[in-house]
């Protein structure tokens, strides 16, 4: 009955109607108590919604920080608490279903990452070769300059290269301790996992380790490369994450 009018009341209330439509609805409202009542109800709804939006926000019943901290910085959380931070509700709930997914994801990520690293390394080597070629004495006796930053010490020894890898953002000692601890726990608990799960975990750890090695090698040539640095950090985090999931699985299957 009134639907042709009530359907327009929200737009009327929000000032979304054209002047002509607005006038028509206003005229109808002056003679229709039912539609006026609906409009007043809608005003109440909007007012209550706005009150809700401005009210002091209700925090979650549970403190969610521990789960967030575990996901953003597992090594630091480990160092602070002296134990592996627990996953949030979702992570615990999904452990058993995410391992196969993680396997597939790790393969894709490793492949993509390796591809990017390979391209960067290839580019660097290309530049190095070009630099070497251009650095060779030319027919005119001039020496072309390499545009790459030059190590002020002029040294390029393996030891010096390794030192350049250090600033990756995750404390190595903490990370290594966390990894070693988890690997030990996984080794102790692997008897509780079935063979196929162990194979998945080991295969993915191998892939991740390869990705870490590739990133490190690439960083030797280009230590300031931000992608490589973040890739290395992310891959190391991924390893820690996989170890934590696998270790949690050994305790879940008790």
């Amino acid at each position: 009955m009134h639907e042709e009018w009530t359907d327009k009341l929200s737009d009327y209330l929000d000032g979304e109607l054209s002047a002509e439509e607005h006038g028509a609805v206003a005229a109808h409202l002056r003679s229709c108590a039912a539609c006026t009542a609906v409009l007043n109800d809608l005003k109440r709804v909007v007012a209550r919604a706005q009150e809700a939006g401005h009210a002091v926000a209700r925090p979650p019943q549970a403190d969610l920080w521990a789960g967030i901290a575990a996901r953003i910085e597992p090594a630091r959380a480990f160092a602070r608490t002296g134990r592996v931070a627990p996953f949030a509700r979702r992570a615990q709930r999904r452990i058993t279903v995410t391992l196969p997914q993680l396997a597939a994801a790790a393969l894709v990520i490793a492949a993509v990452s390796a591809g990017v690293v390979w391209k960067i390394v290839g580019s660097l080597e290309g530049r190095r070769e070009a630099g070497a070629a251009s650095a060779a004495p030319s027919g005119s006796g001039q020496v072309a300059q390499d545009s790459r930053p030059v190590n002020p010490d002029g040294a390029d020894t393996p030891a010096r290269r390794d030192a350049a890898i250090v600033p990756v953002g995750m404390a190595d000692a903490q990370y290594d301790a966390a990894v070693a601890d988890l690997e030990k726990a996984l080794k102790l608990g692997r008897g509780r996992l079935d063979a196929s799960t162990i194979a998945i975990v080991e295969h993915n750890l191998q892939i991740i380790d390869q990705a870490i090695d590739q990133a490190r090698e690439a960083l030797v040539s280009d230590p300031a490369n931000s992608y490589l640095n973040s890739h290395l950090v992310e891959t190391r985090r991924r390893k820690l994450d996989l170890l934590r999931r696998a270790t949690a699985l050994t305790t879940e299957t008790n």
Binding site: V56, A57, P60, L64, R89, R90
Partner: peptide
């Protein structure tokens, strides 16, 4: 508080904690 309220209102209480994280 504000982010959790947003997620709770848009997705429901069941998923709010997880999505807030």
């Amino acid at each position: 508080g504000r982010i959790h309220s947003l997620t709770r209102r848009m997705l429901g209480s069941h998923d709010a904690d997880e999505v807030t994280q």
